[in-house]
Design a protein around this nucleic acid. Structure first.
Ligand SMILES: [Mn+2]
Ligand SMILES: [Mn+2]
Ligand SMILES: [Zn+2]
Ligand SMILES: [Zn+2]
Lengths: 146, 146
DNA sequence: TACTCAATGCAACTGTATTGCATTTATCAA
DNA sequence: TTGATAAATGCAATACAGTTGCATTGAGTA
């Protein structure tokens, strides 16, 4: 969730036309406290004004390219999308529930990763670090015996 | 790569019949220094004695279930498979090259993750931690301008 | 207004994985 | 050893997530 972000300005700042559909996609992502799958996003938007799922995928690709949005892998098949790290939002780890598919954002400081020494000697280019916990969430633990 | 592992015993220890195909799948995974996709594994095996790709998927599911093999997500679409952590092999982070799809195993100590405090208060069940770097590997950096 | 190009829609397609059911192979009791 | 049973594997069809090619629409500009 981001109250500080002006999505229109955010789009302009990376030279993307702030079209209605792009704004809606970005709003759905920004107004959620947890990352969503492409089909979650499509379903949400399609309830109000119709939008093609391919358009959603294309907008997501653009937003990820421009680093406004973060594509997060899961223990499952579909990628999830959340606001990318910026001045208001630090990068942070996630928890993915294998049972219900819910992904939660964890506190940025929850797990400290020390990798400065590694970075010094690594010969490739590092674009991104992803730290994810997989397991069963509180709610699902209650419901069933896993 | 695992010289210490007796794959037959490893299968027996988790109550899986050590069939020829299961052994071959486990050997391909164990004899590699980096994780492989299901189709990498299938292609490798199929060169020698024919094996159906569905059988490979089913064996991989079993091995992952029994925690002999680790299913590792990538920045891409396919999951990769490597030997799971055990007495000889510590869990460790991976580096995934977006350009060539090669995944490398990093030194277990390369990045220290401190999460003991987090674990104490987290209400769900944590089964696995995945730490992955995405970027461009040394070789791909040389070849092209990304 | 007419032209141009970006944005979107739609259908077909791809890669990855899963399912249902048939066939083969292994296990075990008689 | 044989036949019954269950496990393992194969094969075809299907599901799922995402991508591509091309048509249509819409926004900006002369
Ligand atoms: Mn998040
Ligand atoms: Mn590894
Ligand atoms: Zn859950
Ligand atoms: Zn590479």
């Amino acid at each position: 969730m981001c109250e500080q972000c002006n999505y229109k300005e955010l789009l302009k700042s990376v030279h993307l036309e702030p079209t209605e559909k792009r704004l809606r996609v970005l709003e759905v992502i920004g107004n959620n406290t947890f990352p969503l799958s492409a089909s979650d996003i499509h379903d949400t938007l399609d309830r109000n004004q119709s939008i093609n799922r391919v358009t959603v995928y294309r907008i997501l690709d653009l937003l990820v390219d421009k680093k406004i949005v973060d594509r997060i892998s899961t223990g499952g098949r579909a990628a999830y999308y959340g606001l990318g790290p910026n001045e208001h939002h630090q990068a942070h780890p996630h928890f993915y529930c294998k049972s219900c598919g819910q992904m939660d954002c964890l506190n940025p400081g929850a797990m400290a990763v020390e990798m400065s020494n590694f970075k010094k000697t690594f010969p490739g280019r590092i674009d991104k670090l992803e730290l994810r916990l997989d397991g069963i969430c509180k709610n699902c633990l209650k419901k069933t015996i896993n």
